[in-house]
């Protein structure tokens, strides 16, 4: 049965862990807001899909992960990258299409990845990630590393055959995999209440023989606890879990989206549900962290993100010769 984790669940985090969580969420927020501003200048090529508003999901899940573990992401991948430890400066350069980018300017926002960090890539294909996660989970299992693999996907991908097949395969093979459905209410411009036939995406877990959990995706602590249980179960050989995060994206599907299909949920969310605001209020109220320490993190993050934009703007574009490189490891 699907269960809902209450938002005031116990945390099990020490001040360093809390600080790390806050820094991750703040970095994602600053990064995305800055990309929003920079995109408006016309200097970022192509499309960008921003993760602002959903930070607690990436941060709460990835807080449990280490170098043994892998994640696959979505169109909306910047937040997952940051939470998995991908270099922010390299990410910004990548989004600007620079040679110094984490993908040398050949991937861009939609294909941003760092396999050395276990980050298998944002994915231009909706539902592209879950099969890959079955594979990295299988590798961890075959190699006995204790590693787990997490597929982040959206409510749109929850209707893709690849995702459903992958959940079935993960159960059949008893893989250390976690399926995280980030249900932000819309697949492009189509509401999930319309496109997902079940009441909840998590309800589908029963059909694949795995636990399904619904979580308030604005609440870092709820995410952290639900993910902790799933990761623990996966590491112990207990198989996969499906977690549905209920949340909202603060920006459009892509930058430039006029969002005429939406109501006023963004304003509500920003005012009453925002993950950073709630996290901050809570840890200050409990005395676990001081406002000063959190302010210091804000300043560090602002400097980091600001610096990343300056460096990206100053960085060279890829060389023309790079057009033809890195198609193959060996060309014969």
């Amino acid at each position: 049965m699907t269960e809902t984790i209450p938002t005031d669940a116990s945390r099990g985090l020490d001040p360093d862990g809390l600080l790390r969580a806050y820094r991750t969420m703040r970095t994602i927020r600053d990064f995305e807001e800055r990309v929003h501003d920079e995109f408006a200048t016309g200097d970022i090529p192509g499309f960008v899909h921003l993760y602002a508003g959903e930070e607690a999901s990436a941060a709460g899940v990835c807080q449990h992960l280490d170098e043994r573990d892998t994640i696959a992401s979505t169109h909306r991948g910047h937040g997952h990258c940051i939470a998995k430890g991908v270099d922010v400066t390299g990410m910004m350069a990548e989004i600007f299409g620079r040679a110094t980018g984490v993908c040398k300017g050949k991937g861009g926002s939609m294909h941003i990845a760092d396999l050395s960090r276990g980050m298998l890539g944002a994915n231009g294909i909706v539902g592209g990630g879950p099969p890959l996660v079955c594979g990295t989970a299988l590798a961890a299992k075959q190699q006995n590393t204790g590693g787990v693999a997490v597929a982040f996907f959206g409510d749109g991908a929850s209707n893709q055959g690849t995702t459903l097949e992958s959940m079935n395969l993960a159960s059949v093979w008893n893989l250390p995999a976690i399926f995280v459905a980030e249900n932000n209410g819309y697949a492009e411009a189509t509401a999930s209440t319309w496109s997902v036939a079940a009441d909840n995406i998590a309800d589908r877990a029963a059909g694949f023989g795995m636990p399904g959990v619904i979580v308030d995706g604005f609440d870092f602590f709820a995410v952290h606890e639900a993910a902790g249980e799933a990761v623990e179960r996966a590491r112990a050989g207990g198989g996969p879990t499906l977690i549905e995060m209920k949340l909202t994206r603060y920006f459009g599907h892509f930058e430039g989206d006029q969002q005429t299909y939406r109501g006023d949920e963004v304003r509500n969310a920003r005012e009453t549900l925002d993950c950073l605001t709630r996290f901050r209020r809570r840890v200050v109220e409990t005395g676990e962290l001081t406002a000063e320490r959190l302010d210091a993190v804000d300043r560090e993050v602002a400097a980091l993100v600001g610096g990343s934009v300056e460096r990206a703007r100053a960085a060279p574009a890829p060389d023309g010769a790079d057009l033809l490189t890195d198609v193959y490891v060996r060309y014969e």
């Binding site: 099969p131 996660v133 079955c134 594979g135 075959q142 992958s166 059949v172 093979w173």
Partner: peptide
């Protein structure tokens, strides 16, 4: 033993799994 895996009829999932495993040191 343990190295020949039967799969459900789910080509996307298991071909994708082979690809994912290949990014993590396996040669499927």
């Amino acid at each position: 033993p343990g190295r020949v895996l039967d799969t459900p009829i789910s080509e996307s999932a298991f071909i994708g799994a082979a690809i994912g495993a290949a990014t993590r040191g396996m040669r499927p």
